[in-house]
Simulated assay, not measured.
Amino acid sequence: MKKLTAVQFEDYIQKGGSTKPWIVLAVEEGNKLPIAEAYVVKLFKKDHALNDCALASEFIVAELARELDLVVPDSAIMTFSNDFVETLTDEQIKFLEGKQYAPTFSSRLLNSSTLVMAEVGNLSSPAAELAKLFAFDCMVINTDRGGFRDKPNLLVDDDGFTLIDHELCLFFLASSSSTGINKLMKSIKAGNIDMIQYGRHIFYQKLKSYKGKKVHLFNEFEENLSKLNVAGIVKYAQNLEQENIPAGSIDSLNEYLSLLKQNASQYCNILLGLIR
C-alpha cells in the first residue's frame, strides 16, 4: 500500500463535494529518490472518516473496482506532516480543523474531465460497460452515483470512464449491529435487492430502456465476481487497520463478498431482473 507525504499545496478541486478536496504535490515515503507527483486529497471530518469508516470505504471499494476490472485512479495513504502544515495559509490551516489528514485517502490526479449529470444521456459507452458499473455499484451498495444528490462521480476521457468518490458505500462496515448486513444477505439469497436506492443510479434508465439483448449484459461482471479474491480484499482491510484507518466489521465484509462470489450467477440474474 503506497504511503505519501504532502510537500506542497497546489490548488482546490472546484467541483468537490463536502470534503472540498485539495490537490497537493506528494512524495512516496521511503523512496531514496522521491519525485513529487500530484494527488487529490479528500479531507473528511474526523468523525465521518473514522467512526463512519468513510476512509476505509474509499480504499476498499477502489481495490474491489480494480479486482473487478473497473478503472479507478491509483490510491495511496496520504499524511500531512507538521512541516507541510506550516507552509499553508491561515485560511487553509483553519479549514483543516476537525479534519482527518494524518492519515487520509488520496488518489492520483488525472487529466480526465468530471462528468456532470446533464452529460450522462450523451454517453456512447457500450451497454455492457454501463451494466458492469451498475452491477458494481449495486454490489458495494453505492447510493451516491446518481442517487438523491444527482452526482455521477465519474471522470471521462477518450478511453472511457474512471470511478471516483466511494465514501458512501458498504454501509455495514460502520454498523455496530449485524442486523443490516444480515437482512441484505437474506434478501440476496431470496433473489431480491431493494430497488429504491438503485432506481436513481445514473445508468439505470439507460439500461432499462436498452433495446438490445439484455441477457448477456452482466456476463463479464459475473465472471470477474466468481473469481474475486475475497481473502485478498480482507487482508487489504486488515492492513488499513494497521495503518490506523478503522475498517469496521471486516467479518461482515468477508461474509458478504463470499456470498456474492459463491452465488455470482444468481446475483447477476437479480440485477438482470432490475433492468427488464
Rank of each mutant, 00 (worst) to 15 (best):
K3P: 15
Q8P: 06
I13M: 11
Q14T: 07
G16K: 03
G17R: 01
G17W: 07
I23D: 07
V24Y: 02
L25C: 07
A26Q: 03
A26W: 00
G30M: 05
I35D: 11
Y39H: 04
V40K: 09
V40T: 02
K42I: 01
K45Q: 07
K46H: 13
K46I: 02
D47V: 15
S57G: 10
S57F: 12
E58F: 01
E58M: 03
E58I: 05
V61I: 04
L64P: 10
R66A: 02
L68S: 03
L70C: 13
V71W: 11
D74V: 13
D74G: 12
S75L: 09
F80V: 01
V85D: 05
L88N: 07
L88D: 01
E91N: 11
E91S: 14
Q92H: 04
F95L: 09
G98I: 02
Q100K: 01
Y101P: 04
T104D: 01
T104Q: 07
F105N: 01
S107L: 03
R108V: 10
N111K: 14
N111W: 13
M117P: 11
E119P: 14
E119S: 15
V120Q: 09
N122L: 15
L123V: 03
L123W: 09
A128P: 05
K132W: 06
K132M: 11
K132N: 15
F134I: 11
F136I: 12
M139I: 05
M139V: 02
I141V: 11
N142H: 09
D144Y: 00
D144S: 10
R145H: 04
G146T: 08
L154Y: 12
L155V: 10
T162G: 15
L163W: 12
D165I: 13
E167T: 06
E167I: 02
L168W: 02
L170A: 06
F172D: 00
A174F: 00
S175G: 04
S175Q: 14
S175D: 14
T179P: 00
T179R: 14
G180S: 15
G180Q: 07
I181P: 01
L184H: 02
L184I: 12
K186W: 01
I188L: 13
I188E: 02
K189A: 10
I193T: 00
Q197Y: 15
F203S: 12
Y204Q: 08
K208C: 05
K208W: 08
S209R: 06
Y210W: 09
K213P: 13
H216N: 12
L217H: 08
L217D: 00
L217G: 03
F218H: 08
N219H: 04
E220F: 02
F221N: 13
E222F: 06
E222L: 00
E222R: 11
S226Q: 06
L228P: 02
L228Y: 03
V230G: 08
G232W: 07
K235S: 14
K235H: 09
K235E: 10
Q238T: 04
E241V: 03
E241F: 01
Q242N: 14
A247D: 03
A247L: 05
I250C: 01
I250M: 00
S252D: 02
S252R: 13
N254F: 11
N254M: 08
E255R: 08
E255Y: 08
A264L: 10
Q266G: 10
L271D: 06
